[in-house]
Nucleic acid binder design. Sequence first.
DNA 1: CGCTTCATTGACGCAAGTCAACTAAGGTGG
DNA 2: CCACCTTAGTTGACTTGCGTCAATGAAGCG
Lengths: 225, 225
Amino acid sequence: MGKCEQCIIKQFNALKSLSKEELVRISNCKTTRVIKKGEVIFEEGEIINGVYCVKDGICKLSKLSENGKDQIVKMVVKGQLIGQRSLITEEASNLQAVALNDMEVCFIPRHEIINDLQTNPRFSYDVLKEMAHDLKEADDIIVNMAQKSVRQRLAETLVYIQESFGVNPDKTLSVLLSREDFANIVGTATESAIRVLSQFKKEGLISIIGKQIRIDDVEGLKRVE
Amino acid sequence: MGKCEQCIIKQFNALKSLSKEELVRISNCKTTRVIKKGEVIFEEGEIINGVYCVKDGICKLSKLSENGKDQIVKMVVKGQLIGQRSLITEEASNLQAVALNDMEVCFIPRHEIINDLQTNPRFSYDVLKEMAHDLKEADDIIVNMAQKSVRQRLAETLVYIQESFGVNPDKTLSVLLSREDFANIVGTATESAIRVLSQFKKEGLISIIGKQIRIDDVEGLKRVE
DNA sequence: CGCTTCATTGACGCAAGTCAACTAAGGTGG
DNA sequence: CCACCTTAGTTGACTTGCGTCAATGAAGCG
């Protein structure tokens, strides 16, 4: 099993602020898990009792609303942590995590990390920074949900995915999402998302290549009203 | 000027985890500000350079969307802190703060508190907890915005305000909001909010007494679909 | 007593939700 | 290898929630 002290992934998250000794300790009790596309990492309401560090792959964090629809709240890629929020508030998870492609994650049990959080100020300050960043993003999403049209939100989502998660060699989005996923990100019906996407295609803003989507006119998408 | 060490307000927020010495130091450089109803505490984009501790009153935190409408993201009452998020990410404020009634707030400049945040683990862990809680609330709001009707959101808002901020002796909501405020919380047009409110009134769920709103049937509101 | 700001109500149009039919693609077993 | 089934995607038709514009009423206020 790999060692946390040597893992480059930690450079991308708060774990970088842990001391060598702390990392060695964590390394000894962490478990690595391989997760297949579509598999559930943890359920909404589940007591996670630790955090996941994403070594590879990408997943979606979603919440089931009362009407039975899933709302995707955040997407998490290689290098980021999942589950910190619930760890800190000592609650069950408020979100479900599902892999969007094959993943590799390390699980760090609660008791190993909670102590560092309470005693290592550099580490907790780093986690604080990440959480503050997430909170700002969440505020922005609230405003978008409340004030913008489905068409506008979908356009912004496409640009966001391209800019945050990158593209394949053929310029298609590297993250492969179903139409339902798109709908669940922007908060609309699947059919509505489909219609808007095919409208974008008709307008020459995107191309649809097999299951992949390629953005042809980023500026155009940004100008969508 | 009052002294932080003796201020009971701090019991309600993370400041309670500061040591006596830290509080004395903060007390010496804090400034107290009286803010009238409707007054702006800080603007979106303003560099706050510190945090506000709300000693009395209530305010709204909102963000202007590109179409020119304000979206209220959070309401803050006596005992809570404002501006921690921006303090931590070292950015300008992403939100505007406006007093909903007469307020009294203490301003603690950045340089006095940032050090405590980086060295006092109890304190930063407390701030972390508050932020984690805010983040969960934000996630819930995202789901509501994306999946529920205006009618449903307004019903939930009314219940939320009653349960979080309490009622006057005559059972009316203690927080007085304009119709526009309600619209900006649920993310809709003012006229739509008005229509839904008068519908609730017609259905006997609420009463409108002068400028005040009284909830007559909490359960009924919770059942709204 | 006019002026301004907030609340209310009506009329109208459009964005988006819903239901339903149909196609395409992939997978499995006989 | 084909027949069958399942799942994802697509499109049309219909309905409706909600935004917008506009007119009017009510309430404070200098």
